[in-house]
Design a binder for these strands. Structure first.
Length: 290
DNA sequence: CACTTGACCTGTCCGC
DNA sequence: TGCGGACAGGTCAAGT
């Protein structure tokens, strides 16, 4: 569920909450793999290191350390990263911050303690997410990173760059192509549906049948939708929260996602939910004809 | 090679 | 009420 806007929201939170803090210890809650303290020789680059920066690439968080290592985190579907300060931990927090008061909970996989008493929780109900240490210089070369397409919000990523990339997937549906992280990075199911609706393209339409002009519109809509969502703190469908444990409000601005049975905001036709590219897909059958 | 489907997990919701 | 099954959707591996 965390897509680009959600991960970017977490990144912004982390950069104010943990940059400059020093790792004191880590604790694993019995999760078998994919966590940094499974190997002592790697863990030495975590404990004692200061957080120097927090970056994002696609849907991955990059927590850079003064040791020359980077903690790379992918939240997949249900991952959360929540930072709790001493202030909250000892009862000074706001009563509405129930996530914070309930931690750790049954979904907690790992926590990292900083020397000032701040604690970072990595929660993941479905255990698809991972957190791994890599030498910072090698991060761009790890398999997951090398295959990624451009960041949609980089101004240099224009239609002239996007169109040939999508055309490599001419044989598949436009939705599958937009979800393909090698075409462009960071779009997931929510923002694929939203941007295809905005561009008036049927998600099941073959890429080959979408004219360049429409692909150009689509890229612009992807950018617009992503920017709005970041502004709204991302989408909370079920369990996404930001680094302070708070929900995002983008879904109240969504036009089709999770709105099956409701009228299309553009033409009033009832929004339907179908299956495209193996995913639940929301669309307006009037605006988005095949 | 290009593309699609299933696996990875666990909680929730729906129908019987 | 309880139970089984479908579903949620990011990414990789396996299958067509």
């Amino acid at each position: 569920m965390p897509e680009l806007p959600e991960v970017e929201t977490i990144r912004r939170g982390l950069s104010t909450l943990i940059v400059g803090k020093i790792v004191q210890q880590t604790h694993n809650y019995g999760s078998p793999k994919s966590f940094p303290n499974t190997s002592a020789d790697v863990r030495q680059f975590l404990v004692g290191a200061a957080v120097s920066d927090v970056k994002r690439r696609a849907k991955a968080l990059l927590i850079e350390l003064s040791s020359g290592y980077t903690l790379v985190c992918h939240l997949k579907m249900t991952g959360q990263i929540i930072v709790v300060s001493d202030h909250n931990r000892w009862g000074g927090g706001h009563p509405s911050d129930s996530f914070i008061h309930g931690l750790p909970d049954t979904t907690t996989r790992e926590h990292i303690d900083f020397t000032d008493g701040t604690r970072l929780y990595f929660n993941d109900l479905r255990k698809f997410g991972w957190m791994k240490l890599y030498p910072t210089l090698e991060v761009p070369n790890i398999d997951f990173m090398r295959k990624l397409g451009p960041e949609p919000l980089e101004s240099a990523f224009s239609a002239s760059n996007f169109i040939p990339r999508v055309r490599r997937r001419n044989g598949t549906s436009i939705k599958a192509a937009v979800l393909d992280q090698t075409v462009l990075a960071g779009v997931g199911n929510i923002y694929a549906d939203e941007s295809l609706w905005a561009a008036k393209i049927h998600p099941a339409c073959k890429v080959a049948n979408v004219p360049d002009e429409k692909l150009k519109v689509l890229l612009n809509e992807v950018k617009t939708v992503m920017r709005l969502s970041i502004e709204k703190g991302g989408s909370t469908d079920k369990n996404y929260v930001n680094a302070e444990g708070k929900k995002g409000s983008y879904l109240s601005f969504a036009k089709v996602f999770r709105r099956e049975g409701q009228p299309c905001p553009r033409c009033g036709t009832t929004i339907v939910k179908t299956r495209v590219a193996g995913r639940g897909t929301h669309l307006c059958p009037q605006c988005q004809s095949l």
